[in-house]
């Protein structure tokens, strides 16, 4: 009995310690978001003066100003298109490649894999010049598809590296079973490997969504028309044009951050346990 209490006390203290630790880190993470929100509801007269935690008159007009002045409607749609296309493209292309690097046999397998890894290491600082020249030659400059292909390339190496690591780690019994059942490799990839790698794919989706969502340098290089520009260009212009109007800037930033947080919320659910049942194969083949 005493033993039991002691154990409970010990684990209680341990849990308490862990909770304090987690909470304190969480506070430092939440603080900037809170600060952004707080500023976005203030007016320019009070923002530098008022030090209260929640400023009394909440100003909602900042959001309207940000939305209309920043032309966010068009930009937002573009960003959704780019992010969705690039992420879908990367997930398919990189998981195919990573699966092949991990499971399939072909000559030059390691050579090609290390080529992708090496590409992660060598930054190409001046590559924008040949890139723009090439895109104009092949007629992909100032088109959505050109920008999407470029962005797929940007995230490809890292996604392949992460996915291959996870495929290597996964037990191959399920795939073997599927093969015996007569599934082709494409079906195995789609019905067995991809569902099993769900946590890793969630990571890739988060990773690349964020990357595409926050990108505007390449967009400005490859695209000319305002109507094709992504959201971050709007945010950036907006922060520079209203260089001092912090409440409106913060409102714009809140608008731009919200969708990506939603993507994360949707994706992080997939980073979970419990993908062991063999029913997956039964359903698929």
């Amino acid at each position: 009995m005493i033993q039991c209490n002691k154990y409970r006390l010990y684990s209680g203290a341990k849990n308490f310690g862990i909770n304090v630790f987690l909470l304190s880190v969480a506070v430092t993470c939440l603080f900037p978001l809170f600060w952004m929100l707080r500023c976005s509801f203030m007016s320019l007269d009070t923002i530098f003066v008022d030090k209260s935690l929640i400023p009394p008159p909440l100003v909602f007009t900042n959001y309207i100003t940000a939305w209309t002045k920043g032309n966010f409607g068009v930009y937002l749609l573009n960003s959704v298109i780019y992010t969705a296309s690039v992420v879908v493209g990367i997930v398919i292309i990189s998981s195919l490649a990573a699966y092949a690097f991990s499971r399939l046999e072909f000559p030059g397998r390691n050579f090609f894999f290390y080529m992708f890894v090496l590409a992660l290491m060598i930054p190409l600082p001046g590559s924008f010049v040949p890139l723009v020249v090439m895109m104009n030659k092949i007629g992909l400059a100032n088109t959505r598809i050109g920008y999407i292909l470029c962005m797929i390339n940007v995230g490809l190496s890292m996604s392949i590296l992460i996915l291959k690591t996870f495929f290597d780690k996964m037990p191959s019994d399920l795939e073997d079973a599927a093969r015996i059942d007569g599934c082709g490799r494409l079906l195995i990839w789609w019905h067995v490997a991809l569902p099993l790698a769900r946590p890793a794919i969630a990571v890739i989706v988060i990773f690349n969504s964020l990357n595409v969502w926050n990108e505007f340098i390449l967009a400005q290089l490859l695209l000319n028309d305002e109507a094709l520009m992504p959201l971050q260009k709007g945010v950036m212009l907006f922060t520079n044009t209203n260089s001092v109007d912090y409440p409106v800037i913060m409102a714009g930033l809140v608008i731009s951050v919200t969708p990506i947080i939603l993507v994360y919320l949707a994706m992080q659910k997939h980073i979970i346990k419990g993908l062991t049942s063999g029913t997956v194969i039964g359903e698929s083949c």
Binding site: F128, V129, L131, V132, V133, M135, N136, K137, A141, F216, I217, Q220, L221, N224, D225, E226, M236, L237, N240
Partner: peptide
């Protein structure tokens, strides 16, 4: 009127577009 910013990004765009012969 097309705006590209910040100024670093603008000069890069102009430099690259000059090489590609697509300046406005």
């Amino acid at each position: 009127i097309n705006l590209y910013a910040p100024s670093d990004a603008f000069s890069r765009k102009v430099v690259a577009s000059a090489q590609a012969k697509v300046l406005p």
